[in-house]
């Protein structure tokens, strides 16, 4: 997984609460076989009109926010279904950091699984950054996970807090899988013990469906 250490980029303002997973990615885009390419469908209904023409007033359709890597939004960001297609769409669009007063649980966890940093800040601080993001001259900010700070264009820094284990995993670019694979010996030992305790849990041959006659 790509580590997340320090990101200097354009922040886009999205002063909307309860942005749900259906807004982030409508269900009809679930028929995909890739994590990639979903950026085109991000905020589909808000970004495009019925004729698939870009709505010029939507921030992500305007300069400089077209190239945003940070999103500033309001309460309960990412609510709705558990589909990971929602963070994938943001990531594919180029957004790696979302700043909001609160996030939906599952979405929050899914961000870390995809190398993205969700930052929780107080409502007043989010307002300050929202105002910054709204002006092209102040829309560039730096999110530093190492220091746990956000630096505004004019240099002022705002601190944030984050679970230390999650922070470390993002900094190291270690995903959950790498962490679990480090327990290889314990997994193997458990498997040996379980094979003795419940030997009847047998594996299947890859082509079992061709050979297995109806039982």
């Amino acid at each position: 997984m790509t580590p997340f250490t320090r990101l200097t980029g354009i922040a886009a303002p999205l002063p909307v609460a309860n942005v749900d997973t259906d807004m982030l990615l409508p269900a009809r885009f679930l028929k995909t076989v890739s994590r990639k390419g979903l950026g085109a469908a991000l905020f589909r209904a808000q970004r495009f009109d019925a004729n698939d023409v870009e709505r010029p007033d939507f921030p992500l359709n305007r300069r400089p926010w077209r190239h945003a890597e940070i999103l500033v939004a309001l309460d309960n960001f990412g609510c709705g279904s558990s589909r990971e297609h929602a963070p994938w769409a943001l990531r594919d669009f180029g957004i790696r950091c979302i700043i909001a007063p609160s996030f939906a649980d599952i979405f929050y966890g899914n961000c870390f699984k995809n190398g993205m940093l969700p930052v929780v800040l107080g409502a007043a601080q989010v307002e300050v950054l929202m105002a910054d993001a709204e002006q092209p001259e102040t829309a560039i900010m730096t999110v530093d996970l190492e220091q746990r700070t956000i630096t505004r264009t004019q240099g002022e820094t705002i601190g944030f807090s984050i679970d230390p284990q999650r922070r470390q995993r993002l900094l190291d670019g270690v995903d959950d899988i790498a962490q679990s694979l480090a327990f290889e010996e314990k997994i193997a030992a458990h498997e040996r013990g379980w094979r003795i305790a419940a030997p009847w849990i047998r594996g299947l041959a890859a082509d079992f469906a061709k050979t297995e006659t109806s039982g």
């Binding site: 899914n110 679990s180 997994i187």
Partner: peptide, 16 residues
């Protein structure tokens, strides 16, 4: 489980 978790199970046969 979610897709990242499915990937985790494929790789490790375990789940957090």
């Amino acid at each position: 489980i979610g897709t990242s978790e499915a990937e985790h199970v494929l790789a490790t046969q375990t789940l957090v």
